[in-house]
Amino acid sequence: MLTVENMRVDLGDFTMEGSFEVAKGARVAVMGPSGAGKSTLLNVIAGFQDATGRLMWEGQEIGTLPPAERPVSMVFQDNNLFPHLTAFQNVGLGISPRLKLSEADRARVMDTLQRVGLDGFEDRKPAALSGGQQSRVAVARMLLREKPLVLLDEPFAALGPAMRVEMLGLVRDLVAETGATLLMISHDPEDARLIADQCILVAEGRVEAPVETGAFLANPPAAMRRYLG
């Protein structure tokens, strides 16, 4: 279980606060107006943004750990891949930051690439991959890291609708398979319906506790209604 207690971010003219819990294995959509702090929330959990309060995973404090040591795997909006490294190397970094890979490690990397449908693409650099394929490399690395908490900061936003749905389906299946907990930022209620069983609203400086997706979308809070229009 992810526990956020009395979290508060103060960036001068922007503040955000909230306390909530997310059950293990839940798939949660983080929704709210632009600029409300959805990315900030994910950055706090991943360790890229300072905040006061407590942050715990399964009862253990994780707020003081460096990003790499948290039980978190995050896929960013962009810059998920190093352009000078091949797909294989980009995924391999998920096992060893020094890229020292044993035979077994190499086999795992190849397996994972195969699972996300990138068989045969391992030696290509990002520039030689399509947008969807680049996303698959990022997802493969996320999968390989086997972290129990997965954060998606709209990594598929730049893809076409069909491709985005396909990627979200892939992530949903993989997360279900590994039992990981998922927090993803979403702008589209359809995306939320497709993948999330709960929704968190971030609006007007507050992070609300998760609500069941169907109920949330059937009867959105006032701030969400304004946003959805």
């Binding site: 460096p66 790499a68 995050m74 960013f76 190093f82 190397q89 970094l93 930051p97 020094r98 890229l99």
Partner: peptide, 17 residues
């Protein structure tokens, strides 16, 4: 952020990033 989340630091960071 990507380097930090993957724990790439020190000489590995110099060499690979």
């Amino acid at each position: 952020r990507l380097s930090a989340s993957l724990g790439i630091s020190g000489f590995a960071w110099l060499r690979w990033v």
